[in-house]
Write a protein that binds this DNA or RNA. Structure first.
Lengths: 280, 280
DNA sequence: GTCCATCTGTGCGAATTCTCACAACTAGAT
DNA sequence: ATCTAGTTGTGAGAATTCGCACAGATGGAC
């Protein structure tokens, strides 16, 4: 039995579609289809129903996938172990962080890290969906709340507050009762900064909803209304001016997250302390 | 990370040499060497020391092999699960048995099994070294003592006794005090039938030692001396005659062994009951 | 309705991987 | 000393596998 066939089948079982599995493996979807077929042939067992638009696991397929799942776990543990075994401060370290943090606080300072540790290569992925450290989609992650997954170590390394920002011209020309607002889309209605903004806005109009903080900032800059932005974002931009509204501001903690297996790895430690400095 | 690379490296770690790993995987030794090298490159980690006549795991290699070992376990469990999922009475079933049992009691009757279950293909390996059911080197095994490995199910399905056999001419022409004997080699000195033979032989000469029971029978047939042979072997051969010596004979139990995972598989059950009939 | 994004399937050329045959070397047996 | 069996290493051709480009089909957005 070819283990690569297993790997592809388990990826399919985990991701649900050929294409998603192919993406997660970094191969073509045709390859996944072929390898799953090969595994079926090797086992003389029908593992998937090929429906017009989807692959669906058969009962046998589900059972096999369930039994095989620990293999994937172990494979990821092996990747971490391999990374952890590297005694020199080198290698590729992947950081996952919310896009705004990545762009504004981390990316500009990466050059310093490179100067200090030339052996380290950084892969910085800014994404909203939290990358899985267990699957080693990232070595280090910055998150705005404490993660609960087992095997992960979290350390609070920063805190920032939100404030309302608009363009200087807009703030000067608009009466408070006429303020318009820029907000996250409704899927984010439950996050603290959104609730804070909504409470302040009250019945006043929301003129733009977007899931991207950069878009909110860009909109506010053009004078369309006010957006709730992190201070580190708003204060850094001269085209944005803060509106003081009194009351208790809302803030978010920044957590540095890494996997137990990597906690003693020199390269990971170096990057972790670099990230602490970025957030200090 | 390529799982096939892992598979090859773990096989190397388990078997000790490139060639043995290649045999167990059914590939060329060059392939194993290349895949191990590929894994090292992917992990940027030196896993083996290439010494003139051997591959030796480095410390990192040992650690990786230890962490990865469960993957191999799971892979074998998957193979068993695949076999167990086959609801029809068909597929290839591998039987491991001591060579003499395989040749004399099983092989001659295999044609009956085929008649009853045409879908089943049998692979019969007669070998002294006990095949690993956990690694699915065999689906069913016959052993002469109760195995203790976890996960295995053993059932006592037979019993046979040993007796002394020689050629009729030899028994007639030789005085008891002049008997010579054929025995196992000294690595088998501790098995019951060998101890029994040695006790009876006393100070009389051992003229041949061989690790193969068939060889002992062949030697006894030629009139070189007496051999301790299973009754099912000696009685079936007109060129051998039994020597009654009184006293308590020595016997061995025959155990049918199979893995828990396969216990309900129709094809395996069919072969198991066939083996019971063979030994009845 | 149209457009767009996403999913699976097919055929072909390219890149990779494997096997084979041979070589060099070692340890142990004869 | 010679021979045999077992190990790893090298090079070339063959076999396999992969990715690309395109097709067909579906569901959702507008």
């Amino acid at each position: 039995m070819d283990w690569t066939d297993l790997q592809h089948f388990l990826a399919l079982a985990r991701e649900g579609t050929l294409s998603a599995a192919a993406r997660s493996l970094g191969v073509d979807h045709v390859t996944v289809a072929r390898r799953v077929a090969a595994l079926e042939a090797a086992m003389s067992l029908k593992l998937v129903d090929r429906r017009p638009r989807s692959y669906e696991l058969t009962e046998d397929g589900k059972r096999i996938a369930k039994i095989g799942a620990p293999m994937a776990e172990t494979a990821f543990a092996l990747e971490r172990a391999a990374q952890a075994s590297k005694s020199e401060v080198s290698g590729e370290i992947t950081i996952s962080a919310p896009p705004s943090l990545a762009n504004l606080l981390i990316a500009p300072k990466l050059v310093l890290l490179r100067q200090q540790h030339p052996g380290i290569t950084i892969k910085l992925i800014g994404e909203k969906r939290t990358a899985s450290l267990n699957r080693r989609e990232a070595d280090l992650a910055l998150r705005l709340s404490r993660p609960t997954e087992p095997g992960l170590i979290a350390r609070k390394i920063g805190y920032f507050e939100f404030a309302l920002y608009g363009s200087p011209g807009y703030l000067q020309a608009t009466a408070p009762h006429a303020f318009a607002f820029v907000a996250y889309d409704s899927s984010m209605d439950e996050v603290p900064q959104q609730r804070w903004l909504m409470r302040f806005a009250g019945t006043r109009e929301i003129v733009l909803r977007t899931n991207d903080l950069e878009n909110q900032a860009a909109a506010a800059r053009t004078g369309i209304g006010l957006a709730a932005l992190p201070e580190f974002l708003g204060e850094a931009d001269p085209r944005l001016q803060r509106l003081d509204i009194g009351g208790r501001p809302v803030g978010r903690e920044v957590w540095l997250v890494l996997h137990r297996d990597l906690r003693r790895t020199p390269a990971v430690r170096a990057v972790a302390s670099f990230l602490e400095d970025c957030l200090a």
